[in-house]
Computed example of a mutant assay.
Amino acid sequence: MTKNYVHHLCIQTNTYLETLAFYTKALGFEIVEESQNFHGRAFNTWLKLGTFYIELQTGKQGEELVVANSNSEGLVHFCLWVENLQQEVERLIELNTHFVLKNGEIIYHIENGQLCKLKAPEGTIVELRNNQGI
């Protein structure tokens, strides 16, 4: 039997530079490959965090991408585990990261842990969690 695993998510953006900075500076992804003028797109970039990749791309030239909606079908958010959530939140506040508040709080409690949610410049919700349970 072959092993299966999630390799990457593809995220499109109208705000390439801001989105690239968010994933690299705020979340710690490294740029693996950045291709310009890629099949009608200004950029197609591969980002890596551990064994997880994001394919970050602009829309095709002359195309304005439609803004995502958290009430849409499809991907709602993705989650990254962090060792020290409070410390990570403090670092992200310094970077002026956009948090999604719940009851006015950045960090909120869930069963067996805590989490917070960030909104990337292109609209993707990224959850940070300090427990590895489901």
Rank of each mutant, 00 (worst) to 15 (best):
V126F: 11
V6T: 13
N44P: 04
C116P: 03
Y53I: 02
G28V: 03
H98I: 05
V126S: 09
A42V: 05
V66I: 15
I125D: 01
V126D: 01
Q36I: 04
E94R: 13
L128W: 04
Y16Q: 14
G62A: 06
L128Q: 05
H109E: 14
I125V: 15
K117I: 04
E34H: 14
N14K: 14
V76I: 07
N130I: 10
K119T: 10
L85S: 01
A26R: 02
H8L: 13
G59M: 09
V32N: 02
L65G: 08
Q61F: 05
L80V: 06
G104H: 15
L47Y: 03
E18V: 02
N69R: 09
E94F: 03
I134E: 14
F78L: 03
A120V: 04
I125G: 00
H77N: 08
L118D: 02
W81Y: 13
V66G: 07
L92A: 07
E73S: 05
I125C: 06
Y5A: 13
L95N: 08
G123S: 12
E33D: 12
V100Y: 06
Q57V: 04
G40V: 01
C116W: 03
N14T: 11
A26D: 03
F43A: 06
H98T: 08
I107R: 09
T97H: 02
I93M: 04
T58R: 01
G59R: 02
K119Q: 15
A42Q: 09
L85Q: 12
Q61E: 15
L95F: 04
I11R: 05
Y5L: 02
A21I: 09
E73C: 04
N14R: 14
L75V: 12
R91C: 10
F38G: 00
A26S: 12
Q61T: 08
H109F: 05
G74R: 12
I11E: 00
W46F: 09
T58S: 09
L56M: 04
L80R: 05
L115S: 11
L95D: 05
I106L: 08
L128P: 02
G28T: 08
G59N: 05
H109C: 10
E18Y: 08
Y16M: 09
A68G: 15
G62F: 10
T45Y: 09
K25Y: 04
E30A: 06
N37C: 01
P121A: 10
T124F: 06
L56F: 02
L56H: 03
A42D: 11
T124K: 02
H109R: 15
V32E: 11
Q12T: 15
I107C: 04
Q36S: 12
V100C: 10
